[in-house]
Amino acid sequence: MIQAAWAYLLSHPKLFRDALVTHLTLSGSGLAIAAILAVPLGILLSQSPRAALLAINAANIGRTVPSLAVLAIMLPVLGTGFLPSLVALTLLAIPPILINAYVGIRQVDPDAVESAVGMGMTRLQVMAKIELPVALPVISAGVRTAAVQVVAGATLAAFIGGGGLGDFITSGIALMQLPLLLLGAVPIALLAIGTELLFHRLERALTPRGMRSGSS
């Protein structure tokens, strides 16, 4: 069966490449848009507790909504194809990034902020030199969670005509062609694990040297 999947891959290289490219484009752009929106928003929210309460609660609820529900609900609203899938994946990626950006800034030691202010730093300098660097590992952990979720979510884009590697699984199940199914499932699993490992390394690299611990 694995051989049959491999043979299919060799005989249809373009089909596979296109699906992979769509999958990566969908996940990458969804994640990027979400990060561009949610990181600054989370940082802003950390400065205003009242707005934060509302937004973080909304994000927590958003986080519990099933991925398939978010993707499927796009269908009546935006129809099928790449764009609705992209919108859905962006929506999926926002809550974990937003929550971590907010929590990351909030957990900065108030004494450190106070002493920075005491040294004559402006609000902006405190943010750029103290709060952001200290919060960066938590923020990138949020981006990692979102990245893995988006790669998995992009699999479901196949259901609303968004393409990607999930297409091989849906047609594999529809035709009961197990090799076709493997051609989707194995690369998707590897892609998700690779994403997790890649962002884990990134997270480590972004952690200021003094804050690194041996275990995490």
Binding site: G172, L178, L182, G184, A185, A189, A192
Partner: peptide, 16 residues
């Protein structure tokens, strides 16, 4: 590792 594998892929891998 199990948790990271996207669900549709895991279900698909269980079919055979």
């Amino acid at each position: 590792l199990l948790y990271t594998i996207p669900s549709l892929a895991l279900f698909a891998l269980l079919i055979p």
